[in-house]
Write a protein that binds this DNA or RNA. Sequence first.
DNA 1: TAGATTGTTAATCGATTAACAATC
DNA 2: TAGATTGTTAATCGATTAACAATC
Lengths: 224, 224
Amino acid sequence: MARCRTKGGKRMKQMKISEAVVRRLPIYLQFLNELNKREVQTVSSQDLGQRLDLNPAQIRKDLAYFGEFGRKGIGYDVVYLIEKIRQILKLNQTLHVALVGAGNLGHALCNYNMYMNDNMKIMAVFDALPSKIGTHINSLTVRPMQDLKQLVDEHNIRIGIITVPAVEAQNVANQLVEAGVEGILNFAPVILKVPEEVRIHHADFTRELLSLAYYLDYEGEESL
Amino acid sequence: MARCRTKGGKRMKQMKISEAVVRRLPIYLQFLNELNKREVQTVSSQDLGQRLDLNPAQIRKDLAYFGEFGRKGIGYDVVYLIEKIRQILKLNQTLHVALVGAGNLGHALCNYNMYMNDNMKIMAVFDALPSKIGTHINSLTVRPMQDLKQLVDEHNIRIGIITVPAVEAQNVANQLVEAGVEGILNFAPVILKVPEEVRIHHADFTRELLSLAYYLDYEGEESL
DNA sequence: TAGATTGTTAATCGATTAACAATC
DNA sequence: TAGATTGTTAATCGATTAACAATC
């Protein structure tokens, strides 16, 4: 659902952008924000590539999918490129988020409250445990699951974050889908099934940890 | 650093396994564990593919990099395959982990204490804040950063987890490297530079959230 | 045996990288 | 102008998928 330009500059919708490209955009944005904070005005694909361990040609190509953001002989204007990437990722509208699971991890995420992402806002927190309901996390009151649909509608919530234990995650996902969210970020260590029109991303750190383990050097050389 | 077999069955070290393959192994393992809990004995690549939204041929190929784990006409024995994947990911040894950052997220991870991963154990927790030092998280006492190197040596800690604020993350990474960890799992929303012999994985949920935002359907069609 | 399913080779598809004209 | 760096095309590389013989 990206918009690109034909040679003539006319806009052309729907030119399939690969997932790999989309996943790099937040990385670019993160580093560009750092550069901006350091008041760096301009950056080349060379510089970016060096810092991010990516091929400069790849970076140029990634950005070129969405428009001509750079200047030949000069590089990219940091502020301008930040603005453009924010547009691509639709970060100029504030995205409303519901968080389900007021446990430790849920608390952590609320505290973050996307402090660096002014563009995403947790609007409501839910939990199934009666003991949790009514308690406060920052300025939010933990709500029972029955209120989910109503609050999703009311606050125009488009994303759900799942921070419940693994056994409940699928059930919660179903309820989020039912309530009408368009995307889910799942922290529980299980594979969830959702209708294909709902986008699901996994933030399951156990996966990261396990794949990390693979890359550790052998110590006690063992055979399979 | 994978071991494979030549046709004749002799072992052959070093046949480059792609990162994509390694990242799928934990997913297989996760689902196989579920099947095992449900006392399912056998599973086909067909079944797995359906459930995990992956191509069955891909799954067979992934597994075949490491050995012949299946039986033609039958499929894979769930228990046996779990065991094999655990070996590949080196989960049969208990991996010792240090966690730096006793904030909310650090607490959450300690509570997890890898409950489902008996194979990883957080051996020590560190923080820079004097107010945090000496406090307890479960059975662990929060230690000052000065103790890092000593405890890494003492407990044979091979992995460091970073859950400190973004601005401190690079500094902490440096200290972890200095202390001798082989891998780092970074939760802070920054790009870290580490020597190439140290493996670094990112569990930065803001990235996941931003790329998720990209895939939400447009509402107020805006042009770039 | 017939049906199912693996492991593996070959074909396809897609992503990364190199190279270079355009231009600041 | 000379040097730098983009946007983009072409070349390369690698990953996914299809197909099928082997075999349970």
